[in-house]
Design a protein around this nucleic acid. Structure first.
Lengths: 337, 337
DNA sequence: CTGAAAGCGCTTACAG
DNA sequence: CTGAAAGCGCTTACAG
């Protein structure tokens, strides 16, 4: 690898001058600048960013920590973070924790050792206390799509208003006349959606029935299974609110295999509006969560924190909106059942 | 940030000794080792990996370059690379090029400047010549899931035998009696699958008809559209081989909306065996491509290249296998049409 | 076993 | 405008 010293030698100057030409921090005479640029080109010199990082105390690298990429939701978010990161000439160190606290701690520590300039931690990929500790060691951190946690007040968070998402979905079903509305929810990450669901029901004078609250893990398979369980109930619900689209699609599959019609016998709503929702069978009504916007906002905030080292805590909530399609747009077939 | 000098001072030794304790490269007396470890713990010292990287000339970082994460195929591959990377105490710098050659070149250059220890380039995310150039500058590189390209002989490649995938899918349809078999294919990345398709047809004495060869871009939507075009043909095919599952699922949707039965009126085969394939409507017959195995093989090969700096070119082909489900398992309903 | 010195490849005041 | 020197935080021979 050719170094700045090689370039200096060839251009007949000193390394400091080469550095000045490259960084443009200090004026250099046109003549020597040309000589230096020529030498750089001839030697195909590429500055060693590791050395620069050590000298400058910054690495132009962000750490992004997510639970998994298997969930397309995070895949999209990572894409967007990478896009913004790239625009700002930063690079992205990515790691997945699979929601395992130990992994999260280990990854955060290692990335801190690598002296990344800042962290974005998504979807509760690590323990809140570990993230707070990171911030207390003066690392810029932005937390994105987290759960409500009192300790979060200490650090900047960018999130989607998921409680509103739960309300929008549930109110929509209530408007179509449903009273027995089930929910499939992954705790604790989707707790706000559950809260929204409960609030909307209470608003309508309905006391949430625990038997209609089913656990999932956000996968297609878990939605499928939860729906099967709901269908086996003596007094089965007439509508299902699945807290993400994958579970909603899984639930649809289960309902159809059971020989029931959607939405005639069972209305279904999801959350996210993933690409497949529009092509589902029938097209899925869902609450769209503007994930790219959230990712962008989080990244830009982090970049600002790094540059200006502002210290105030933030809370940015992006509003979701309902996308009505055909999985809900028919009134109950047998309203008396 | 506390440095090795702080630790040394506190332990009453020199930085070299602290380093020796940490790296265990040189024996240190138990007594001073304990003092050093105590100081490390008290100061919560974390070695600066940037400085170590500069001193050692290695960064314990791999670069992974993929086209996109939107395709769950790559999402899974990235997960697996990250897993293996992590196991070996490496980290992963990720970038996406969206199959844009300029982006690829730019990202590779930047990552080289960052002195990553090696590169995995996936799915033709960059121009072959740029990757070859990288290797010629002595960067360890492994190429994964590439297209056949004569220049590839220069570098190690790990791939799935996609031509075999095309043959398996097509032969399967031929066995069920289909003669008018269409293909939806993204060129040039899926060219081998097309070759396999053509070979299987010729083997069966059928001359591939260009009108049955339709372009796609690997997305659900493109499969949907291509199937629509095929259905509009005066002499429409009785089977569709979609070169990935997403296009197959899109094609299924189009066929069903058209009012035709699967597989009675139209058999459909995909490639990949993504999670959704088994839950499709009907469950999708597909050629499973062991993507995690490929990702793991590529990462481990790269790690070996970094350690031993072997120079021989490699070619590793992983065999795919057919997964028969219900989207093909009925003979033609109207064999005379 | 431990310390003093030099080096990794940059950048940054400070002189001149 | 340019050079000499010191420093970023480590590691690695080499002495002792």
């Amino acid at each position: 690898m050719t170094t700045i010293a090689d370039v200096a030698r060839r251009a007949g100057v000193t390394a400091a001058t080469v550095s000045n030409v490259i960084t443009q921090r200090v004026p250099v005479s046109a003549k020597t600048r040309d000589r230096v640029l020529k030498a750089i080109a001839e030697l195909d010199y590429r500055p060693n960013l590791v050395a620069r990082g050590l000298a400058l105390g910054k690495t132009l690298t962000l750490a992004l920590v997510v639970p998994t990429l298997t969930n397309p939701y995070f895949a999209e978010v990572v894409e967007e973070v990478a896009r913004v990161t790239d625009q700002h000439d930063y690079q992205m160190l990515l790691s997945m924790t699979h929601n395992h606290a130990d992994e999260g701690r280990r990854h955060l520590a290692r990335m801190a050792s690598r002296r990344v300039d800042g962290f974005i931690v998504m979807g509760m990929a690590a323990d809140t206390s570990d993230v707070v500790a990171l911030m207390q060691q003066d690392h810029p951190v932005v937390v994105c799509m987290w759960n409500h946690d009192p300790r979060l007040q200490l650090l900047p968070v960018v999130d989607i208003d998921f409680r509103l998402a739960g309300e929008l979905a549930t109110r929509h079903l209530l408007e179509w006349g449903h009273r027995r509305i089930a929910i499939i929810v992954e705790e604790p990450v989707q707790h706000s959606r559950l809260q929204g669901y409960q609030m909307a029901l209470l608003e309508a004078g309905i006391v949430p029935d625990p038997v209609y609250i089913r656990p999932g893990d956000s996968s297609f398979a878990s939605g499928y299974q939860a729906a099967l369980d709901l269908l086996a109930l003596p007094h089965r619900p007439t509508a299902i609110f699945a807290c993400n689209d994958w579970m909603a699609l899984g639930a649809m599959e289960a309902v159809e295999r059971h020989g029931l019609a959607i939405p005639g016998d069972m209305a279904i709503v999801g959350v996210d509006d993933i690409a497949q929702a529009a092509y589902a069978h029938p097209p899925l009504t869902t609450v769209s969560t503007p994930r790219r916007e959230v990712a962008r906002a989080a990244t830009e905030l982090l970049l600002r924190l790094i540059d200006h080292s502002e210290q105030e805590p933030y809370m940015t909530l992006v509003r979701p909106h309902l996308v009505v399609r055909h999985s809900t747009d028919v009134a109950l077939r047998r309203s008396g059942e």
